[in-house]
């Protein structure tokens, strides 16, 4: 990030230059952008309030009559604002964002390895899905049952995550983050299974 205002050269400009009021290029980090501490637990109401307030300040509509350069920064800033709001308001996406920032990216797909404790469940589900294809109606109840179990697991994970989020925020303990990553991977795997049951 530039340390001087692009327009008048004043030092240490914030979102807008204190001297000439010109819009500055936005910071890329979502937490920095929203002026929020980089925490995993976050007040959704406060975030939304910030989102609306910043929209009123930064939206391209407001910069329609400004210079080309300010129009570009407005577009950039609003993109970061909207992208950031989408990510930060969702606890799971927010956690993945923090992991990525800490170099613990779990990637788009997550792991493809079946968690060992789910091996049997996954095997049974695949069987049932196969039977469904051949018109076995009994398999349907089996699949619905599986879905209920998976949804239960997700809820359980979310509860654990909440505790871990608070733990990370309190001490930024790297081990906690690794634990969170493990849970997020497991969660991702389970939500994929739920999706499979929905296609049936």
């Amino acid at each position: 990030m530039e340390s001087n205002c692009w327009n008048c050269g004043a030092s240490a400009p914030e979102r807008f230059c204190a001297d000439c009021k010109a819009l500055q290029p936005p910071p890329a980090d979502y937490f920095v952008f929203f002026g929020l501490p980089a925490q995993l637990s976050l007040d959704g109401k406060e975030l939304e309030k910030q989102f609306y307030a910043l929209s009123r300040q930064l939206h391209p509509d407001i910069f329609a009559r400004k210079s080309q350069r300010e129009r570009e920064y407005s577009l950039e800033a609003t993109a970061v604002l909207n992208d950031g709001f989408r990510v930060l308001r969702d606890p799971i996406q927010r956690a993945m964002y923090v992991l990525k920032k800490q170099g613990l990216d779990i990637g788009e797909q997550g792991t493809r390895d079946v968690p060992p404790e789910l091996l049997e469940e996954v095997f049974d589900l695949n069987m049932a899905l196969e039977e469904m294809k051949f018109g076995d109606e009994e398999a349907r109840t089996q699949i619905l049952g599986a879905r209920e179990r998976f949804e239960g697991m997700c809820k359980e994970i979310d509860g654990e995550l909440k505790k871990l989020f608070a733990a990370w925020d309190a001490g930024h303990d790297a081990e906690v983050l690794t634990e969170i990553r493990g849970l997020l991977n497991r969660r991702k795997y389970i939500t994929n299974l739920i999706k499979q049951t929905e296609t049936a």
């Binding site: 391209p60 993109a79 970061v80 909207n82 709001f85 989408r86 788009e108």
Partner: peptide
């Protein structure tokens, strides 16, 4: 196809 910006995302949006 790998989706990079999902439908109903507020615009401007980027990836």
């Amino acid at each position: 196809v790998t989706k990079i910006i999902h439908r109903n995302s507020t615009i401007p949006a980027s990836a």
